[in-house]
Design a binder for these strands. Structure first.
Length: 237
DNA sequence: GCGACAG
DNA sequence: ATCTTGTCGC
């Protein structure tokens, strides 16, 4: 994918937070995405004993969700994990992975928050602005806001509230299993984001784009970051 | 000042 | 995120 825009990532935590305040004004929480024929999931994996981050992006065809492309990038990162500044740790590696991907997904799922973030710019929103693509944040826990427990059935939802505002939705993707927290990343509306998450969650708590990215990121890490690209046209292995 | 805190 | 074996529940 062509990266429409880039900015320095070697910033201090204070500078990073300032940049987020600046970029947040460019996030679009309404969408124009029509039919989705290609989705992608992005994630990163790393160990605490190394400063190497292995980022991956997996593209899946819709509606069958067959994996059609996998790319990875392993990069050294010194920025530590700081709640609210995740993008400054995983962003550089993710951007390189996207640069290596030939597919042009209609929407990209990220492991983390979209606008449900202290400064309204979680990793899904931040990357969405840089890539100028529709993105969705699918987090396994909340960073800000609160949400009532959704009903036990699959498909049940409950709004994530913050100061009376709905900033996302807790979504039960699997019966009686802890919900995932969905928030708009960029160029998509919340209702559509929730629909897409439910449409791509098949039998597991995490939707396939995110789940496949998780699996591949772990594979790349365990293999030391050797493979950089892998394209499969009709199989998903 | 204290506790919370995506991955 | 990662470190880790078995184990309780659908």
């Amino acid at each position: 994918m062509e990266i429409r825009e880039i900015h320095p990532f070697d910033l201090t935590p204070n500078e990073a937070a300032r940049l987020q305040e600046e970029l947040r004004t460019r996030v679009r929480t309404s969408g124009e995405i029509g039919e989705v024929s290609l989705v992608a999931g992005a994630d990163a994996s790393y160990t605490k004993s190394s400063d190497e981050i292995h980022a991956v992006v997996v593209a899946l065809r819709c509606p069958d969700l067959t994996v059609v492309e996998r790319v990875s990038a392993s990069i050294r990162t010194l920025f530590p994990y700081i709640p609210g500044l995740l993008t400054f740790r995983e962003g550089p590696a993710l951007i390189e992975a996207f640069r290596r991907m030939r597919s042009e997904p209609d929407v990209i799922f990220f492991d983390g928050q979209g606008i449900a973030h202290p400064r309204g710019l979680g990793i899904a929103s931040h990357m969405g602005v840089l890539l100028d693509r529709p993105t969705i944040g699918v987090a396994k826990s909340l960073l800000v806001g609160t949400a009532a427990e959704p009903e036990a059935g699959r498909g049940s939802t409950s709004p994530i509230l913050r100061d009376g505002e709905t900033i996302g939705m807790a979504v039960r993707t699997k019966e009686s299993i802890k919900p995932v927290y969905v928030s708009v990343g960029h160029r998509v509306e919340l209702s559509r984001a929730v629909d897409l998450v439910l449409e791509t969650a098949r039998g597991y708590r995490l939707p396939e784009p995110t789940r496949q990215a998780h699996l591949y990121a772990n594979t790349v890490r365990k293999e030391g970051g050797g493979v950089s690209r892998q394209t499969t046209l009709s199989h998903g292995r």
